[in-house]
């Protein structure tokens, strides 16, 4: 296979996953959330149980007027949604789906993922400040405090599993994974998942958006396609956090018949975790700002540090 064809296939696969998986998750959220609340959700678009609702939403977003507020910093305002979306595209490239099935295998993929996810904070601050709206700014400052705080337990939990596997490469971590790690690394997995939820600002950690008090936080002034970009970033975020938790803590493609069906196992685990993310959103109310920071600094960080000690101890003993 020539190099360019190989490259083309990889890019096409990543783009397809990048565009399709968030839509699937979004539609699942529509329906699961509706049924958890005793409703049926969208029923008309696409004739069968509203399967085409998000496509219709996309068409609607494209048609909407693209408004930039008069006092806004136009360049920064328009750049922010792209900055929000771009890191996730990079992260999706490095996630291994099956044995050898990865768009870009890197020696230190874990570091890349954590570093690039951190760029999301800049997008939040950019959109918040450039909107020239006090609600946006409040949301952005809350978001920055939350994202900076929760990055610490996220990185520490990921460091624990990297130490256990002895490598920073994502496929390498999956290969080194053993079933008993489910217990050994369980605290780190929980911390990673919760901190990941906070990183993508999903309820119950959606204090920066908090539509009941801040209108829509840093996204208040966005309309049309730019707003759709932010929404897409949120749903790609769900996929990315679910995929990273799968790869790091749930053993990725490991399962019965993993040579042939490895990719299916990964996708199944990602789907199950995405369901849990939606489930948590439906069940729990939004956390107050002080509770949010308290959970991060007084619970997650100590647990992650204790897990590091545990990992070192077990690693040294075996």
């Amino acid at each position: 296979m020539p190099l360019w064809l190989d490259l083309l296939i990889r890019v096409a696969a990543v783009l397809a996953g990048f565009l399709v998986l968030p839509l699937v998750v979004g539609q699942a959220e529509h329906k699961v959330m509706a049924h958890m609340q005793g409703r049926v959700g969208p029923m008309y678009a696409g004739a069968f149980h509203g399967w085409a609702q998000l496509i219709a939403d996309g068409v609607k977003f494209v048609q909407k007027e693209d408004i930039t507020p008069h006092d806004a910093d136009r360049t920064v305002f328009r750049l922010a949604p792209i900055v929000a979306l771009f890191p996730y595209l990079v992260v999706v490239m490095t996630i291994p789906i099956g044995p050898g099935l990865v768009a870009q295998s890197l020696d230190i993929g874990l570091f890349l993922v954590l570093a690039v996810l951190g760029i999301g904070v800049v997008a939040v601050l950019m959109s918040a400040w450039a909107s020239a709206n006090k609600y946006s700014l409040l949301g952005g400052v809350r978001g920055a405090a939350q994202l900076l705080g929760y990055e610490l337990p996220l990185v520490l939990a990921a460091a624990s599993v990297a130490m256990a596997a002895g490598t920073l490469s994502l496929p390498g971590i999956v290969e080194a994974w053993q079933p008993w790690w489910l217990i050994w690394q369980a605290p780190a997995g929980l911390v990673f998942f919760i901190a990941g939820l906070a990183e993508i600002r999903r309820p119950p950690f959606d204090m920066p958006i908090a539509d009941s008090e801040l209108v829509f936080g840093y996204m208040t002034e966005y309309t049309g396609l730019r707003f759709a970009f932010f929404l897409l970033a949120e749903y790609v975020g769900i996929v990315v956090i679910a995929a990273l938790t799968t790869v790091l803590f749930l053993g990725g493609w490991h399962g019965p018949m993993e040579d042939q069906l490895g990719w299916l196992w990964t996708l199944l685990k990602i789907g199950a975790l995405s369901f849990v993310i939606i489930w948590l959103r439906v069940t729990f109310p939004r956390m107050r700002e002080d509770q949010l920071q308290r959970l991060c600094w007084l619970v997650l960080v100590p647990v992650a540090l204790a897990q590091l000690v545990l990992t070192v101890a077990v690693k040294a003993l075996t």
Binding site: D107, F111, A115, I119
Partner: peptide
């Protein structure tokens, strides 16, 4: 590679703190 990603991980966070100070 490692230094590059550490640069992004650490300095982007640092710049965000700087931006917060600038805003606040």
């Amino acid at each position: 590679e490692l230094v590059a990603w550490v640069q992004i991980l650490v300095y982007v966070g640092a710049v965000v703190v700087l931006l917060l100070f600038a805003v606040m």
